[in-house]
């Protein structure tokens, strides 16, 4: 089971290739507004995260995920319950 900090670090690694412009990723970075992810990229990232953490991510959480921090918190809950 990974802790919150480890999850955030792994998320930075996964999200970095999707950055279109020079911008420092932090916990407040918004996935759509700041990184500019489209719906297909969001789905691709979910698959990458699922593989890396060996979990299944319910689509139901997506409306609650806006920032890197939101995403990491959801993943923390999911990895705890898996």
């Amino acid at each position: 089971m990974k802790n919150y900090e480890e999850i955030v670090t792994e998320l930075y690694t996964i999200l970095k290739p999707y950055m279109k412009k020079e911008r420092v990723l932090d916990e407040t970075t918004e996935l759509v507004a700041d990184i500019g992810l489209d719906s297909l990229q969001v789905m691709q990232i979910l698959l990458e995260v699922e593989d890396r953490f060996d979990i299944s991510i319910p689509l139901n959480i997506i409306p609650d995920v806006r920032t890197v921090k939101d995403f990491a918190q959801q993943l923390e809950l999911l990895t705890k319950s898996s």
Binding site: M43, L47, D54, I55, I57, L59, N60, S82
Partner: peptide, 27 residues
Amino acid sequence: GCRMGEAEVIRFRHNDPTDLDKRLRRL
């Protein structure tokens, strides 16, 4: 239809029975 209901919704990789199996096992 999934979104309109209240179930937990999870995708598996397109046409990938192995991925489906893995996700069922996790459940």
